[in-house]
Amino acid sequence: MAQITFNQEHKLTIKDGTTLSEFLKEQQLLKEGVAVAIDEDIIKKDTYDNVILKDGMNVDVYNMVSGG
């Protein structure tokens, strides 16, 4: 098992070998208008399947919100 920090405040335990796309699917966040940064590196959408989440990673998921 690995522990990651999700959106700065949530400590989550995930199975070893979990990919970013699996994680996003689980969180219902694998959708349009979403971007992900891991340890402040922005992850390209077409690589989500290949990114394996590891212990200690900071995973931040962003979406578009209303604003001027």
Partner: peptide, 19 residues
Amino acid sequence: ATMAVKRVDVKTHQDEIVA
């Protein structure tokens, strides 16, 4: 139209504005 980018708030339900 313009809009902002923010960390997803997992607790509150946010209105979908892109669609």
